[in-house]
Amino acid sequence: MTVEEIQLTEMDDDAIRAFLANRKMGVLGLPTDEIPYLLPMSFGYDDAETLYFTFVGGPESRKRGLIEATDRAVFLTYAAESPFSWESALLTGRVEAIPDDEWDDIVPVLEAAWRPDVIEAAMETEEVSVYRFSVDEWTGYKHTGLPPGFDVDESV
């Protein structure tokens, strides 16, 4: 099968929004001097063009240092049901810390975010920061093709 034969559909803005609304995890890419630093991250989504990340840990955290040293990042989220049914969205955007006094405004988004139990437990005793990822651009692709050799008999 060649790339030309792959049945890819580029998602429009509404499809990307719907996809993000149903995802809870992805990979945040932060720039470094050498290679990007990739982090699996849970996120909250405001149904528009903003994601929210909760960081747990003190100021010595590498991810906290990298995110505070940049204002640009990328984020990838995806779903892969099978080799013939998958979709992904790649977002590029601006990242900024949200001051504690603004957290009340985004409580519903933060409460809807999925977090592993270990993170939930750490939030009780560790320093917590919330970051806003404002999307500048996004692209999404969906593949729902049939496996090679599977022909649909349209005469039936």
Rank of each mutant, 00 (worst) to 15 (best):
T32S: 09
G58W: 00
A18C: 13
V27D: 04
Y78W: 09
A79T: 13
T2M: 13
G58A: 03
E34F: 12
L28M: 10
L28T: 05
F75Q: 06
L39G: 04
V27G: 03
E49H: 13
F55N: 05
L30H: 07
A18G: 11
T50P: 00
F43H: 06
L30F: 12
E49N: 09
G65L: 07
G65E: 09
M11R: 09
I67M: 00
G26N: 04
E34I: 14
L30Y: 06
R17D: 07
Y78K: 05
L30W: 02
L20Y: 01
E34Y: 13
L28K: 03
E10R: 12
E68T: 02
L28H: 01
F55E: 03
A69K: 00
L20R: 05
K63W: 03
R64D: 04
Y52M: 00
L51R: 01
I6K: 12
G57I: 05
A79P: 02
I67G: 04
T2H: 12
L20A: 09
E81L: 13
I6R: 13
E10D: 15
L20I: 09
M25E: 13
G65M: 03
L39H: 08
I6T: 14
L51I: 01
E60W: 04
P36I: 08
Y45A: 01
P83V: 06
D33N: 13
K24W: 14
L39A: 12
R64G: 04
L20K: 02
L39P: 00
S85D: 15
E81C: 07
W86G: 05
P36G: 06
A69M: 04
I67W: 02
E68C: 05
T32L: 09
P36Y: 07
D14S: 14
E34T: 14
E34C: 11
G29V: 07
R64Y: 00
K63L: 04
G26D: 09
E49K: 11
A69I: 05
M25G: 08
P83N: 08
E10S: 15
F43A: 02
P83F: 04
T70I: 06
E60P: 02
G26F: 00
E10K: 15
G65H: 09
R72E: 14
I6P: 07
F19I: 08
L28P: 01
E87Y: 07
T70Y: 07
L51E: 01
I6L: 15
A15V: 10
P40D: 10
D47A: 15
I6D: 11
Y37G: 03
